[in-house]
Amino acid sequence: MDYYNRTSLQSQASIISNNLVSISEQLSENRELLSSLVAYPAPSFPGRTHAGALQELLRTKLDPRVEDWVAQGRTSGASALEDKKKNGLSERELAELWEWAPIGANVEARRRIWGGNFTLEEKEMGIQNVVTGLTRQPEDDDSEADEDGEEAVDEDDEMEVMGAHRKVGGVGVELSRPVSGAVPLDEIFRYMMTGVWPKSGNA
């Protein structure tokens, strides 16, 4: 439910923003014309019933409220531009960053022992404190094996069980790839719908 609301919200927002962009384009494109236009009511204009609209049209100065909006918009626009100047990286800086990043990452990676489930730092801090976000407890293989032989055996057993579990769970993954010799779903459907014999599998 939530999901659907969010996507519709997003699409609505993008529609609104697209409309705003096209309005602003129109305004800036026709700026000269619009600023030189003068409103002049024809006698046929229903002045009585549309007095409010008439007044708005004949204004030479903006409504104070509108003027506030405009000022607000101008300042926020200016500040946005300034932010961009202040925070954005220049080409040179970006190039520098990209030059440094792979090497930096490599250096950082060398400091960790990869392959285990935990980093050296985390082990020193105590692995029970690490927030992994996993529901199953990742076994910390090598350190435990060093400490206690018997426990390591238990650990191994458990790992094998885990492996088996994975295989069973893996069926779900394997499903999308048909078992060898099996007729793919779409060919079964085609036979069911139109009597076209499957190409694969059976003769």
């Binding site: 769970g169 779900g172 999308s176 779903l185 060919e187 459907f189 719908m193």
Partner: peptide
Amino acid sequence: LKSAVKLEQADRLSLDT
């Protein structure tokens, strides 16, 4: 049923009647 079977929509053209 995610952990047991993977229910998916069918290929549209395979159900073409």
